[in-house]
Design a protein around this nucleic acid. Structure first.
Lengths: 179, 179
DNA sequence: ATATAATTTGATTGATCGTTCAATGAATTA
DNA sequence: TAATTCATTGAACGATCAATCAAATTATAT
């Protein structure tokens, strides 16, 4: 799976092959089919691993904070930091989510229960709690969550931005939006 | 190219083949190679076509407005409306941008001059003009543009949202952020 | 009407893909 | 120690792919 992550980052989903992954892992191609029921199974397990990694990291950072405002800040910082620190993991995750499809061709990014469910739910919960405690103003939590998630994802694509600078400014803008 | 767009939407970038596209266009596979120098060339031309379509639509809507605030609202509305109205085009565009790579494996979404340059520049220009005229408050235009672009892109992934509802709420949130 | 150029076909080519499988070695169990 | 399961290899298979090209067709120009 770690070899798959590397290969996905290097050549992309459309060009990745089992033989490439096998070579990277210093095993034979057949061994992949022995441990996984197929290429799709390998990809799915890799996706689960990547989602978990991100989820554990962000959850850890958020849990250590108390108030919704602090949790929201920690959420944004952790999301951006994870992306910056684990670039290979994140690229692989993007490659899978935006490319993999079910056998009947439904894209993973259209599936209801895709990777970021946990992360997304955590964010919505923070926003909701913040509204209950009157720390945040009145807005639609799902829309706000979409805005925040989008701002975090989009930062990956704007490669020429400075992380700390962006992080600080983004937190400031989001806070003026919700407080 | 229109056949390619349909095929990309149906089976995704990783599974699309020239013979599928040819069948959809009711031509032979060889004819594609006659008019395009290869699969990559076809994809690149399709990407240019898709980018132009979006760009023309959004530019038209924004140009008809006068003040930066009105232009910003028109920009968001037009972006969301285009995505909703031309879903097939948008999916194809996503498929290409997130999957295609240069011969040396550089992803298109990491390229400096990728699809949304015109759209992105227009947005930044609106924000800048709004700050000059004191309609908008002081913030980093590039970060704000990233937030807005991200919110628009992300809406595609949250499939269960209502467009008009989201559009209205998003405009409201963005305006409280910049005004 | 003829000649030339442009377009289109469809079969072919060579490469690569994911998967299967018999064979082999290593580890575990009895 | 013997028997049995587990792990791994690498070659082979059928399928599919993008690209090529000679032949056929159609359009354009003379």
């Amino acid at each position: 799976m770690k070899a798959a992550i590397e290969a996905l980052g290097e050549v992309g989903y459309a060009n990745v092959s089992l033989s490439q992954i096998a070579k990277k892992a210093n095993i034979s191609t057949g061994l992949i089919s022995y441990h996984f029921s197929g290429k799709e199974d390998l990809i799915n397990n890799t996706l689960m691993y990547l989602s978990q990694q991100e989820w554990f990291y962000i959850r850890g950072k958020v849990e250590s904070k108390q108030t919704p405002t602090e949790k929201l800040i920690a959420f944004i910082e952790a999301s951006l930091a994870y992306q910056a620190t684990n670039q290979v993991n994140n690229i692989a995750l993007i490659e899978i989510v935006f490319n993999a499809r079910t056998p009947d061709h439904v894209p993973y990014y259209k599936l209801e229960d895709h990777e970021e469910d946990f992360v997304s739910n955590l964010l919505q919960e923070i926003l909701h709690k913040g509204q209950e405690s009157k720390e945040f103003r009145d807005f639609h939590p799902r829309v706000a969550a979409t805005v925040i998630k989008g701002a975090i994802s989009e930062s990956l694509l704007s490669s020429h931005i400075n992380l700390e600078e962006y992080s600080e400014e983004l937190i400031h803008m989001i806070l003026t939006m919700v407080k």
